[in-house]
Nucleic acid binder design. Structure first.
Length: 589
RNA sequence: GGCUCCAUGGUCAAGCGGUGAAGACGUCGCCCUCUCAAGGCGGAAUCACGAGUUCGAUUCUCGUUGGGGCUACCA
């Protein structure tokens, strides 16, 4: 076989040589030890927690070593592409403050982000000529060959393999185009047939039932790589003649990954565990091109509990997998990052406890501390982390955050059902526009967001925007919906008396302790214990205790039995609103 | 089915041949307290199983079981 001739036959339009491209992508000039990493999502429009998990890993590795972190769009599968997906990816990552140094990041033009950086194009679909140049080279060296098998033929082959219990795939005797004479290829080409370009693998299938090799001989067909997260990995070599270029001339992931990560100077490939099993393919292609592979870092998959088994988070069933979920629920990006960091590096949490005020970037991130077993995503823990993150945010910052969130997600809130509606929907006509409400009440919001949040033991009950909305909904008539009834301990006939008496004694000028002393003495006057302890000791002496009385007032004012300090709430509400609430409760009672 | 990765409380996990097997979330109890939250103190709860190596295995090896992934002209 004249491979030189075959290469020209297959790729007549390719005039560049590998050397041309290698010259166009010179080695990066970086400090010693600097790592080059990348995030390479495919534009399916669905960006998820796993992407963010990988993004943080790559980002840390690069920026901690004065390296480069770039964004490459893996759009080699036009069937899966979704309109506007790249913008969605970029916007989502920007929301979570993932900082890229280069890649498909510039302003949008014709639906594509322009390149930032010298190692582009950063869309794989724009790199066809590059891939084909190296493909041509492989053909020239006899390391790749055209395959004219149709989809039907391949499907039939698969069925036969299944029936014969042979290992599936294009290999060994099944690789029917591997050694075809030139005439056959010319004939197909002359007939206008399209081909896929396959890799001529030199590996052999040691797992085949009819493999006659001894154990030692089999061992020589294994290879070892050191994974940045998992350490030494020993795997059987690849024996499949995988597709390098599809019929349309666009590469498969395998080929594109090898070419791009080599040319772009990637030193560490951070990707999901699902790639582990195709690692032998990649290692072989790197070797066929005469290149050193990068360090692979295969991250664990994110799981969730389903019934009593763990399973991978699925984009169909689990809304919490989508980054959009956290954004629309109103989780602060810092909280999501902080949580992800705790599951990313097992020692982050302890570091954070020891350094509560330190900038997260001063944490020393290492791949060795990454877990290689499936991690269950824990919403509870996220919420807990979020409380600690939010308690450190000044009220002004929280207010700005809520305002931004509401502008995007809170334009039509129905307090009765607590649902967020589509603002365009006519049924949502009387929904509350939280954005307008927040904007019109800046001073009040700032006071609300300051309740008890300073000092030695600040309240930590703010978690995410939707939860915060519920948390202070009673401050505004627009969102006020009474939730709780008066406490059972207080006889119904006492309630009007308590409320009327309270109304008569309520002076907004009273400070917190004067105010409460009044409540206490009034409670005692009505036959309730002034100290809960006294009531517990001698329940027969009292109707109840001051806590029951104040709960009546609390329910009247806030519609709830539980709330932060009532005096503070009343100060923020102002006298007219407090009076109106109590009168309203009296009218209803 | 084949190949492969993983395995410490309910969850995230430290551990890297000898430990009372950390810590965090959750949970339970107590304290503080006008309610809630926060905070303090304390409790329950873990090395999947079976062989082997070793004076000694959570730790090393093999097997079993369980779970995950891959097995496309998808990434």
């Amino acid at each position: 076989m004249n491979y030189e001739k075959l290469a020209e036959l297959l790729f007549p339009h390719i005039t560049k040589t590998p050397a041309d491209w290698i010259a166009a992508f010179p080695p990066r000039v970086l400090p010693e030890g600097a790592k080059v990493t990348r995030l390479a999502p495919s534009p399916t429009g669905f960006i998820h927690l796993g992407n963010l998990y990988g993004a943080f890993t790559g980002e840390r590795l690069a920026h901690q070593s004065e390296g480069v972190f770039f964004l490459r769009i893996e759009d080699t599968d036009n069937k899966r592409e979704v309109e506007g997906a790249v913008e969605a990816v970029i916007s989502s990552l920007a929301y979570f403050n993932v900082r890229f140094d280069e890649g498909a990041l510039g302003e949008m033009k014709n639906g594509k982000a322009t390149d930032v950086g010298a190692y582009g194009p950063y869309y794989q679909s724009d790199r066809a000529e590059i891939y084909q140049t190296f493909a041509k080279q492989l053909v020239r060296e006899g390391k790749a060959y055209p395959c004219f098998a149709s989809e039907e033929e391949l499907a039939a082959m698969r069925e036969t393999q299944e029936a014969e219990k042979a290992n599936p795939g294009y290999h060994g005797k099944w690789a029917v185009w591997r050694n075809r004479p030139m005439e056959d290829i010319e004939a197909e080409l002359a007939a206008g047939k399209k081909f896929t370009l396959r890799f001529r693998s030199e590996g052999i299938d040691i797992s085949a039932a009819d493999c006659k090799l001894t154990e030692e001989e089999k061992a020589s067909h294994m290879f070892t790589v050191t994974d940045g997260i998992r350490g030494r990995l020993t795997m059987p070599e690849n024996y499949q003649d995988v597709v390098l270029l599809k019929q349309n001339g666009i590469p498969t992931y395998h080929f594109a990954h090898v070419i791009d990560d080599h040319l772009m100077g990637t030193t560490h490939v951070v990707r999901g565990e699902e790639w582990l099993s195709s690692l032998p393919i990649h290692v072989q292609i790197f070797s066929a091109l005469g290149w050193e592979p990068p360090v692979f870092c295969h991250t664990t998959v994110l799981m969730k509990m389903d019934g009593d088994t763990k399973r991978k988070l699925s984009k169909r069933k689990d809304p919490e997998l989508s980054l959009n979920y956290y954004r629309s629920e109103g989780y602060h990006p810092d909280a999501v990052r902080e949580y992800l960091l705790t599951i990313l590096n097992s020692n982050f949490e302890e570091w954070r406890i020891a350094n509560p005020d330190a900038d997260w970037e001063s944490f020393r991130f290492t791949t060795e501390k990454m877990s290689s077993s499936g991690t269950l995503f824990d919403l509870n823990k996220l919420n807990d982390v979020s409380k600690d993150v939010l308690v450190r945010k000044p009220a002004e910052e929280l207010y700005a955050f809520l305002l931004d969130w509401a502008e995007r997600y809170g334009r039509a809130y129905d307090p009765k059902t607590r649902m967020y509606c589509d603002p365009e929907d006519p049924a949502a006509a009387d929904a509350v526009d939280l954005y307008e409400l927040f904007r019109a009440n800046e001073a009040k919001m700032l006071r609300i967001l300051s309740i008890d949040r300073t000092g030695e033991k600040p309240r930590k009950d703010l978690v995410y925007a939707k939860q915060i909305v519920e948390y202070f909904s009673y401050f505004f008539d627009e969102t006020f919906v009474p939730e709780d009834t008066f406490p059972e301990e207080v006889p119904a006939e006492d309630i009007p008396e308590i409320l009327e008496g309270y109304l008569a004694r309520y002076y907004p000028e009273d400070d917190n302790s004067v105010w409460f002393d009044k409540v206490r003495s009034y409670a005692e006057h009505l036959g309730y214990a002034g100290k809960p302890k006294d009531f517990k000791k001698n329940p027969e002496l009292y109707k109840g205790h001051v806590g029951h009385v104040s709960t009546v007032i609390r329910v009247a004012v806030t519609g709830r039995r539980n709330s932060p300090d009532l005096w503070t709430i009343q100060q923020i509400m102002g006298e007219p609103l407090v009076q109106a609430r109590i009168k309203r409760a009296l009218g209803g009672a």
